[in-house]
Each structure stands twice: as C-alpha cells, then as structure tokens.
Amino acid sequence: MNRTTEEASHYNDLEKMSVRELLEGMNREDRSVPYAVEKEIPHIEKLVEVIAGKMSAGGRLFYIGAGTSGRLGILDASECPPTYGVPFDMVVGIIAGGDTAIRKAVENAEDDMEQAWIDLQEYNINEGDVLIGIAASGTTPYVIGGLRKANEMGLETGCIVCNYNSPVAAEAKYPVEVVVGPEFVTGSTRMKSGTAQKLVLNMISTSVMIRLGRVKGNKMFDMQLTNHKLVNRAVNMIMESTKLDAETSMKLLEEFGSVRKAVENAPDRNHQL
C-alpha cells in the first residue's frame, strides 16, 4: 500500500531554518488538517450513529491503538466521565503495552496480533459494544488483530487511520480515513496525523454524548464537579436555567450534587432543562 504518512516532508534542511520559519511551516501544514477531516464527515456520521445506537442500549465504546494513537484514545476516554458524568467504564481506551506505554514506549508491543483481544477480555467485551481501532499508518498489527477478532465475535467496528486502503480500514466495518499528507518532520505522525485523530475523536465522543442526552441546550448538565471553577460554572448554569439567585443555586447544587438534579428539583418549575 502507498503510505502517505511515510512520504517525504515538503520541507528540507529543517535544522537550517530559523525558529520563525519552523513555526510558520508547521502552522502552514496544520491548516490542511480540518479540511481532511471535513471530507470524512459522512463516514464519521455513520460511525457515530452506530455507536449511539449501541450505547443507548447499554453498550460501551472501546478504543485500541499503539503509541500516539493509543494515547489519544485513552485521553478521549478519560475525559468522558468528568465532562458528561458517565461511568468510567462506559468509554475505555486501551494502549498496546498497557498503562506503562502511556508514558514510555514498550518495545514490540504493537506487533502482537493477538494481544489486543486478550487485553479487551479484561472488560468482558461483547457484541453489544463497539470497538474503534486508531492507527495513523493503518498497519498496526495490534489494531488489525483486535478488529479482526471483534468482527468474528459480532461487534460493530470502526477505525481512524491516515492512509487510504490500509489493512486496519479493511478490517473495520465503519472506517474513517483522514489523509493529511506528509508530515512536517517525515514520518512523525504525532503531528498532523495525531491532530486529525484528536479532532475525529472529539467529534465522535461529543456527538455520541449529545445523542445520549448528556448535554442540554449547549451545557454540560452532567459534568463532575471536581474543582472550584466547575462548581462556579455549575452555579451559573443553575441560575440561568431557573432564574434563581446565586445563593439558592449553590444550596441546590450542594443538596443534589449535580446541575441536572438541582434544576429538576428547583422550587420554581418555570425553568427549562
């Protein structure tokens, strides 16, 4: 297969460039990423609809990947509980090599075709769940093997890759191929490819959570209140929804523990959820 992610950079002699030239070159390349993502919206839409349907019925979403791709999946999964108040095991990110690989590369971890499914067994993954493989190259054996086994077991599968016609995309029922072209530093897929994957992950998880009713209007009504900034945001949301004053809104928040419950139990029933 022709791997765009491995093609030579449009720039050369990087070490001879000034800092300004380096920054402007990277920024120039980064501008192409949203356009590449835009082309894949129809495919992202299909994947989101499948995920929302499965999760509405009690299913879960799993991400698997290696290196940067695995870390991005873990990042997206870890942000769903605080942002949307969902259980920590509703969206799960798994990286080749285990948690150690989040901070430090684990040698040959991505080359094992069997390990992803073994890792997924810890979560009792089943046909009610959805598995998304993330791999910039689209050739990662860990991801290919995981998707292949998931298909055999009747799961819905998707992927996020940055090359066309890759082995990973061939295994996914709902492939998303965001081809951003050569990297500023040849082969450094933590750059444009990683940015593209992050954008797609944002779109997938946010759209799914909205479809699951985890956002009201444009507000995170189910967010976890883990710091003062978020508590203040929650109070403002309650005030806006109920037209109550700050003191009453804070008391409701303290009593019921969430924006949604505070609004639902506010004394003035003229508010809007």
Rank of each mutant, 00 (worst) to 15 (best):
N2G: 11
R3K: 09
E6C: 13
A8K: 15
S9V: 02
H10M: 12
D13Q: 15
L14D: 15
M17P: 08
R20Y: 10
E21G: 09
L23H: 03
E24H: 14
M26L: 06
R28Y: 07
D30H: 13
R31W: 05
V33H: 10
E40H: 14
E40R: 02
I41C: 12
I41W: 12
V48I: 11
V48G: 06
E49P: 05
E49I: 04
V50A: 01
S56W: 14
S56Q: 14
A57K: 15
Y63I: 02
Y63N: 15
G65A: 08
A66R: 01
G67R: 00
G67C: 05
S69W: 01
S69I: 06
L72Q: 06
G73H: 03
G73P: 01
L75W: 11
A77R: 05
E79T: 01
P81K: 00
T83F: 15
V86Y: 09
V86G: 00
F88I: 14
F88L: 11
D89E: 12
D89F: 15
M90C: 08
G97R: 01
A101D: 03
R103I: 04
R103G: 10
K104D: 06
K104G: 06
E107F: 09
E110C: 05
E114R: 09
Q115E: 15
A116E: 03
W117K: 02
I118V: 04
I118R: 10
N124Y: 04
N126K: 12
N126T: 14
G128P: 10
V130I: 10
V130R: 00
L131R: 04
A135L: 09
A136Y: 02
S137W: 03
T139S: 15
Y142H: 11
G146V: 02
R148I: 11
K149M: 13
A150T: 00
G154N: 06
E156N: 00
T157N: 08
T157D: 07
G158M: 10
C159M: 03
I160T: 05
Y164V: 09
N165Y: 04
S166N: 04
A169P: 04
A170S: 06
Y174Q: 06
V178F: 04
G181P: 10
P182V: 03
E183H: 09
R190W: 10
K192A: 07
S193V: 03
S193A: 05
A196T: 13
L199I: 05
L201Y: 06
L201S: 00
N202G: 03
N202C: 13
N202E: 07
M203W: 06
M203E: 02
M203L: 01
S205M: 07
S207Q: 15
V208L: 05
I210R: 13
L212H: 12
L212M: 11
R214P: 15
R214H: 07
K219E: 03
M220W: 11
M223E: 12
Q224F: 08
N227I: 00
H228S: 12
K229I: 09
K229R: 14
N232C: 01
N232E: 15
A234W: 13
I238A: 03
I238G: 12
M239H: 08
S241E: 03
S241D: 13
D245K: 08
E247P: 03
L252D: 01
F256T: 00
G257L: 06
G257H: 09
A262L: 13
A262W: 08
A262R: 03
H271A: 12
Q272K: 07
L273C: 10
L273Y: 12
